[in-house]
Design a protein around this nucleic acid. Structure first.
Lengths: 132, 132
DNA sequence: CCTTTATATGCCTTTACAAGCATATACTAT
DNA sequence: ATAGTATATGCTTGTAAAGGCATATAAAGG
C-alpha cells in the first residue's frame, strides 16, 4: 500500500533531455518502445524507464498492441507548464515593448552616429548578468 | 580562461522549486536578496546560490545599490521554454477539439444512460496511463 | 578604525537519479 | 512446448546538486 504520492513536479520530469526527446517524438504520432529506441538510438531499458516516469506523471499513456506498447501524449502536464509560464509571458511582452519604445527614442535623438547597427528580433546577445 | 560553456539547460534550472519561487517574485518588480530571503523564508546563502545559478543561466541580472544587489528578470531563457512548448500547444488544441467532437457524438447516440455526468473543462481525472 | 548590514563563497553531507547491464515477464508463431 | 520478439524491472554505481553552517567580502555609518 503505497499512499505516498510523490507527484514529482512536471518540471523535474522535463528537465531530462531524453525525456524531452521522447515527448518530441510523440508529437507527430504514437510510437512503440522499439520505434523510440531506434529513432533516439538509446538502449531499450532506458527508453522503458523514461516512459515509465512519463506515464506515472501523466505525460503519456499506452495501449497494448500484441507484444508492443504504443505510447501517446497526454496534454495536461505540459499545459501545466504552459500555465506557469503565462505570467512571465506578460512580463516579457511588456519588456520588449518598452525596449522598442526606448530604441525608437534613441533613433530620433541620435543623429546616426551609431557604432553598431541596431537589430530587431530575438537574437540579442546574452551577457554575464552583473551590471556595475 | 573558461571556454567550456556548460549552459545547463533552462529546464534543469527551473526544475528547482525555490528557483521557480524566486522567479515568481521577480515578475512584479526587482528585489534585493534580503527581500527574497524574507518573503520566501529561506536562508540567505540558499537565496544567493540560487540567484547565482539563475544569473549564470541568464534568467536574471543584478545591479548594485549600496550594499544591496537588486535582481530583475531577463526574458530570454523563459522564452526558450515557451518556444519548446509551442509544438505541443498545437497538439493539445487539436486534442481538445477531437475530444469535443467525440463527446458530442456520444451525446447524440447515447440516450442518457450515463453512470457519471459528463464534465467539460480542464479538470479531468488523471489515471495511471495504462489502458488494457 | 570598528561595527553593522548585505551578500557571496567554501566545505561537507546527503540524496536523487540516470546509465549500464542482466534478467524477468509477456505475447506470438511454429 | 520451444524459440523468438517486445518490453519491463532489478540491482549497482557514479555523479550532480541542494541543504546547512561557517566564514569571507564589501559597503555604510558612527
Amino acid at each position: 500500500m503505497k499512499y505516498i504520492r510523490r507527484m514529482e513536479s512536471v518540471f523535474k520530469i522535463i528537465a531530462e533531455p531524453n525525456r524531452r526527446a521522447i515527448l518530441g517524438l510523440l508529437i507527430s504520432s504514437e510510437q512503440s518502445v522499439g520505434e523510440i529506441e531506434r529513432q533516439l538510438r538509446m538502449p531499450q531499458p532506458a527508453v522503458s524507464k523514461h516512459l515509465r516516469v512519463l506515464r506515472e506523471a501523466g505525460f503519456v499513456e499506452s495501449t497494448v498492441d500484441a507484444q508492443r506498447r504504443l505510447y501517446r501524449l497526454k496534454p495536461e502536464p505540459l499545459q501545466e507548464v504552459d500555465a506557469w509560464l503565462a505570467p512571465f509571458r506578460r512580463f516579457w511582452s511588456d519588456h520588449v515593448d518598452a525596449l522598442e519604445r526606448y530604441l525608437d527614442r534613441m533613433d530620433q535623438s541620435t543623429p546616426t552616429k551609431g557604432k553598431t547597427k541596431r537589430r530587431r528580433g530575438p537574437n540579442r546577445e546574452r551577457d554575464k548578468g552583473e551590471t556595475k
